[in-house]
Simulated scan of single mutants.
Amino acid sequence: MERTIQEIYIDVARGREEAALELLLRLQPLILSSIKKYYNRTDEMDDLIQEGRLLVLDSINEYREDYSVPFLGYMKSRLKYLYLGKNRSRRLLSLNVSNGEDGEEHLDLLADGFQVEEDYICRESEAELLKMVLSLPDRERQVIQGFYFENLSIGDISKRYGITYRTVINTKRRALERMRREMEVKDV
């Protein structure tokens, strides 16, 4: 009979090193499916797999059995947010770099026209959004500020406020739903 991921995790937590290898092998399909689902970049596949494996090994030390989720569920969530987080980091392009065609810099190619109305609407929308965030209950506001304004991961927020990983996810979802409802009321 095949052992469950939870049983293998317990062996690893007790110090059996060979169980760590077994855990990595058993979680390999989850790592691959998470990459394909949340960050499908085949040119970086080897690096992404290694990052997933490192996350599994780090999670062994971070996971506590008193979490309300089994180790496999915990890993699914951690891998999801690892690869989703990679989408948030973008490569920056300097505007002072030559475009290569005629030697002009990207900055020289930008249009000079100001869009006063669009800029005003954008600033007004940002102000409304900030008011909504500030009006959230404390815990929801802390999670939203940490995730969106400070670019903290779900795990970092969980550690900062001493709450479970799943609680952070649920709190974030509730806050976004509350803000969405408030926006719908204002649109009516």
Rank of each mutant, 00 (worst) to 15 (best):
E44P: 04
L24P: 01
E126C: 06
Y39I: 04
L95S: 04
E51Y: 11
D47C: 12
L30K: 01
D66V: 09
L27E: 00
E17V: 06
P29Q: 15
G113W: 07
R14K: 11
N99F: 07
V188P: 02
N96A: 08
V185I: 13
Q145W: 14
V143L: 06
E104G: 10
E101F: 10
Y38H: 10
N99I: 14
Q50N: 08
I10R: 04
V188F: 09
Y74L: 11
G113I: 14
S125W: 14
I169H: 01
R41P: 04
Q6D: 13
L84G: 04
K86L: 12
G73E: 09
E7G: 08
Q145P: 03
N61P: 03
Y120I: 09
I60F: 09
N170P: 02
S34Y: 06
L95K: 00
R166L: 13
E22C: 00
T4G: 13
M183D: 04
V97F: 12
P70W: 12
E105C: 10
M179E: 01
R91E: 11
L48M: 07
A19K: 00
G100T: 03
M1Q: 06
G162K: 04
E104P: 02
L57S: 05
R41A: 13
I121G: 04
E22I: 00
N87T: 12
I154G: 02
A19S: 07
L109C: 09
K172S: 08
E124F: 15
I60Y: 05
G100F: 12
R14T: 09
Y148F: 15
I144K: 00
R16Q: 02
A175Q: 00
R178F: 05
L32P: 01
K186T: 07
R41T: 12
K186N: 07
R26W: 11
M179R: 00
V143Q: 02
F147H: 03
R41D: 12
N87V: 13
L110W: 04
N170V: 12
L136Y: 01
R166T: 07
L32S: 10
N61D: 07
L30T: 02
Q142T: 03
L93C: 09
I121N: 06
A127P: 00
E62R: 06
Y81N: 03
R88W: 08
K76L: 10
Q50L: 15
R139M: 14
L79P: 01
C122N: 11
D138H: 07
E177A: 15
K186R: 09
I8W: 00
L25Q: 03
N61F: 14
L79V: 02
G15W: 03
L176D: 01
D187G: 12
F147P: 01
D119G: 13
V143S: 02
K131Y: 15
P70K: 12
R88F: 15
V185P: 05
A13M: 07
M45S: 07
R173G: 08
S153H: 03
L72Y: 09
R91M: 12
R78N: 08
E105I: 08
Q145E: 15
I157D: 03
R166A: 10
Y120V: 08
G15M: 08
A127Y: 14
Q28M: 11
E22D: 06
I49L: 11
R160A: 14
R139N: 06
S34T: 03
R141Y: 13
R123H: 15
